[in-house]
Amino acid sequence: MQGFFRSYLSVYRPLIHALNELLQPCELSYSLWQVMVYAKEHTRASLVEISQYYGIEKPGVTRRVQRLEELGYLTCAPGNDRREKSLVLTELGMRVYSECRAKITALEERVTAGIGPGPLERTVAVFGQLLGNLK
């Protein structure tokens, strides 16, 4: 079984490196990208929700959000609770998201070339089960 996790890590590290290179022209990293994805998929996302979803400490999410605000990709609006911010992609953030999403999709297609949908779907299911077991 040790070979499974070793194999996973041998793919994970080069993939994150490739993603960071791909995102760098937009001054993004994979960790910043994660926040953008969450904000895109969840209207009015909060720092707490992002922190819980990715299992990241709230100060780490706060730093990422601040950087995305500096870049003009994200804006914070008051949430239902005054202490909680609600995060929304700006118009520029939406354009950058679309541009990066297209590049990431091309990378995903290149990396999974020659692998049929069945094995990929089973792999996604296995990763979901692994995550559930870890939690």
Rank of each mutant, 00 (worst) to 15 (best):
C76V: 13
N80T: 13
A113I: 03
L87S: 04
N80D: 15
Y73Q: 10
E108W: 13
R110P: 00
E91G: 07
Y73V: 06
A77I: 07
E99N: 05
D81M: 05
V96G: 10
E99D: 06
T112H: 05
L107K: 00
E91N: 02
R82Y: 07
I104D: 00
G79M: 14
S98R: 15
G93W: 14
V111P: 06
E109A: 15
T112L: 13
D81Y: 07
M94P: 00
E109F: 07
R83Q: 14
R82K: 09
A102M: 05
S98A: 15
G79V: 10
K85N: 12
E69V: 13
M94W: 06
T75V: 01
P117K: 08
S86F: 02
E84R: 15
L71E: 12
P119G: 07
V111K: 08
R83T: 13
A102K: 12
E70M: 09
A77W: 07
T75I: 01
M94Q: 15
G72Y: 03
L107D: 08
S98P: 04
Y73R: 08
K103L: 13
T75Y: 02
T105Y: 02
D81G: 00
A113H: 04
M94T: 10
I104R: 04
P119K: 09
T90R: 12
P119M: 08
G118N: 05
A106S: 12
E108Q: 15
V88D: 12
E91C: 01
A106Q: 13
D81I: 09
A77L: 15
E99I: 02
R82F: 06
R101L: 07
V111C: 06
C100V: 02
G116P: 06
R110M: 05
L87D: 02
